[in-house]
């Protein structure tokens, strides 16, 4: 649906986006992840035709953004980071204006806008001046605007910024349901959000793609070792020795000492070996009770930091 090929964007001397390529399939929700200034918004602005690329090409539904911009723009609904709303208009006036701008036929506008407002939960606010709406509602109006004309592709730049937790969940569910019949690119720096919504993730750092895969594969691929934390009551030197004797343990260290004779250890084992059972029996045999045992699964957050720090070391 969307093909991005060797895309580069320079602002004078600065390369905001460096030679990135990826494709988004029809009906997919792709997460675009990266720290501030990584080039997320720039890439999105290029896909939507707001900014031209310095090099490379973007194709949406087979149309090149530079050669046939109007064909591409017809197929894209864009929600920029800052909702592009006119503050001196009411919600209804604004959405009507955008409908005209997107050439939605007059006789279809009313029913379409009614549906969209219902979907975004702004029906009750239709006659209010946008200037008087809260940030969350402006955000919803911005989202509603992108849905007008029923575009095949939705580009959402940080759609949940500035919303309260309940609204975030609502909007996420909305995006998920939209994903059934739209192709969506969504940028975010909130990792659980991407994990919850997206089928595939592109991690971008300093203008380059650092990783691209499903959230599950990303955590598998980078999770080279299983990590545990264990709080055990008993003398530290003996317990440490017992831990290191267990088959599969690669490394252990003291994390903290929460009590007088209890110590919390970090234990790293080989990826395919579950050491929790041998650990329990070893400690039980020696008479040192395990107070707490937790496995440290790698979250997308860890992966993200890892990918980005690896990048840093390379540079």
């Amino acid at each position: 649906m969307i093909e991005i090929n060797k895309l580069t964007k320079r602002y004078g001397q600065i390369e905001a986006v460096k030679n990135i390529s990826f494709a988004v399939h029809e009906g997919e929700i792709l997460g675009f992840l990266g720290p501030n200034g990584a080039g997320k918004s720039t890439t999105m602005n290029i896909i939507t035709g707001y900014l031209p690329a310095t090099e490379g090409s973007v194709k949406v539904a087979g149309f090149d953004i530079l050669e046939e911009p109007e064909e591409v723009k017809k197929r894209i609904g864009f929600m920029p980071e800052q909702p592009p709303v006119f503050k001196d208009m009411t919600v209804w006036e604004y959405l009507r204006f955008v409908s005209d701008l997107k050439y939605v036929p007059k006789n279809k506008q009313k029913s379409q806008l009614d549906d969209i407002m219902e979907l975004c939960g702004i029906t009750d606010h239709r006659n209010r001046l946008i200037n008087n709406l809260s940030k969350g509602y402006k955000q919803r109006v911005g989202l509603a605007q992108s849905l007008i004309g029923n575009p095949q592709v939705l580009i959402l730049d940080e759609p949940t910024v500035g919303l309260d937790p309940r609204q975030i969940i609502e909007i996420r569910n909305l995006i998920k349901s939209l994903g059934k019949n739209h192709t969506i690119i969504l940028s975010s720096h909130i990792l659980p959000e991407v994990q919850a919504i997206c089928e595939r993730v592109v991690i971008i750092n300093k203008g380059e793609i650092a990783a691209i895969d499903t959230p599950e594969n990303l955590s598998k691929g980078l999770n080279r070792a299983a990590k545990l934390t264990a709080t055990i009551a008993g003398p530290q030197n003996q317990v440490s020795k017992l831990i290191n004797d267990i088959y599969g343990v690669k490394y252990s260290d003291v994390l903290s000492k929460p009590g007088k004779d209890t110590v919390t250890y970090v234990i790293e084992a080989d990826k395919d070996i579950d050491i929790r059972r041998p650990l329990f029996f070893a400690m039980a045999k020696a008479g040192y009770p395990i107070i707490e045992l937790k496995s440290m699964d790698m979250t997308l957050e860890d992966i993200f930091l890892k990918v980005i720090t690896v990048e840093e070391e390379v540079h």
Binding site: N45, T48, G49, Y50, E70, K73, K74, I76, F78, P80, P84, V85, F86, V98, L101, K102, Y103, Q145
Partner: peptide, 9 residues
């Protein structure tokens, strides 16, 4: 709002 205008068809 320039974005809206420039990304419209």
């Amino acid at each position: 709002t320039e974005v809206l205008l420039l990304t419209s068809p």
